[in-house]
Every structure is written in structure tokens, then in C-alpha cells.
């Protein structure tokens, strides 16, 4: 959950980067919160000409809150043009950083990172089987705060 709105966050709120669907993507990946059905869908165009596949173009859509949209805007902007190994490293660093963040604040970013990972894994899997559907990875963090859980449980 966004606690403070600075200029950079505001820019992403007003104009989320890479937001929207993509025509004929090479791969789609989905990050999902099994507790409330929120999800992030990442679409990739992949450049396979080099040594490692590279993200040529990336878009995302979010069924979730503004924090998820901001996280999607930041992470997809970072991932643009990266080779898959670099993108995976970025995801690993991001997920590592989230370990020190309260779960309800980490959930949105985790959902975006997992959607990106799922999209890259879908791309790999489709090379073996082009019919394979988009992979869906579920998050471990929850965006429901302890206070909200306590309230719901009476």
C-alpha cells in the first residue's frame, strides 16, 4: 500500500508506463493473489536473435489497486530491453528486498514480479509446446493487513 505520494510515484499514478494489452504477444504471464482474486497480466514481445532472449516490448494490465499499478509501471519500465537472465536477476533482487517489507505492502510488487517471471517461463515453455497456456504464479504475501484480518475475524 502506498503510504507517501512523492513526485515520482505521482507520475506513475497519472501516467502508468507500459499499461494496456498487447496484440499478438510472444508470451503472457499472470501473477495472482489467491486471497482476493487480484491479478497482474504481463505481455511480452521477445527478441530471440541474440545469445539470450531479450524483452523487446512489455505491457501489463492490473486487476488490483493503485499500488499494483505503480509497481507494474516501475518494474516493467526497469525490465524493458533487458535480456531474460538480467530480468530474472532483477526479479530476484526485487523479491529479496520485499522480504524486509510488511506483507501487505509487499504483495502488489510481488504480484508484478511473479507475472513477469511467469511470462518469461511461458515463453520458454512454448518453445517446447506452442499450445501451452499462460502460466499463473500465486503470491505468498497478503495485502490484507493484520488489523483487517483481526476485524474480519471479530
Amino acid at each position: 500500500m502506498i503510504q507517501q505520494v512523492d513526485r515520482e510515484i505521482l507520475d506513475h499514478m497519472i501516467d502508468p508506463k507500459n499499461y494496456g494489452s498487447m496484440e499478438d504477444p510472444d508470451a503472457i504471464g499472470i501473477g495472482e493473489n489467491p486471497q482476493n482474486g487480484e491479478k497482474v497480466i504481463v505481455y511480452l514481445k521477445v527478441d530471440d536473435a541474440g545469445e539470450a532472449p531479450r524483452i523487446a516490448s512489455i505491457r501489463f494490465q492490473a486487476i488490483g489497486c493503485m499500488t499494483t499499478v505503480v509497481a507494474g509501471s516501475i518494474i516493467t519500465e526497469e525490465a524493458r530491453e533487458l535480456a531474460f537472465p538480467q530480468a530474472e536477476e532483477m526479479i530476484s533482487v526485487a523479491l529479496g528486498m520485499l522480504e524486509n517489507v510488511p506483507p501487505e505492502e509487499a504483495a502488489c510488487s510481488e504480484m508484478v514480479a511473479l507475472a513477469l517471471q511467469a511470462a518469461m517461463d511461458t515463453w520458454h515453455a512454448r518453445r517446447e509446446n506452442p499450445e501451452i497456456p499462460a502460466l499463473v504464479y500465486k503470491i505468498e504475501n497478503t495485502c490484507v493487513t493484520k488489523e483487517e484480518t483481526a476485524k474480519e475475524n471479530g
Binding site: 505521482l10 499514478m13 497519472i14 501516467d15 502508468p16 499499461y19 494496456g20 494489452s21 497480466i41 494490465q61 492490473a62 486487476i63 499499478v69
Partner: peptide, 13 residues
Amino acid sequence: GILGVPRVVHESL
């Protein structure tokens, strides 16, 4: 001073 266009609504909604 923070006007923004609402984002596209996903079809599944």
C-alpha cells in the same frame, strides 16, 4: 493539478 485518465478496464471484469 493531478488529472489523469482512468486506466483501461480488463475484459474479465
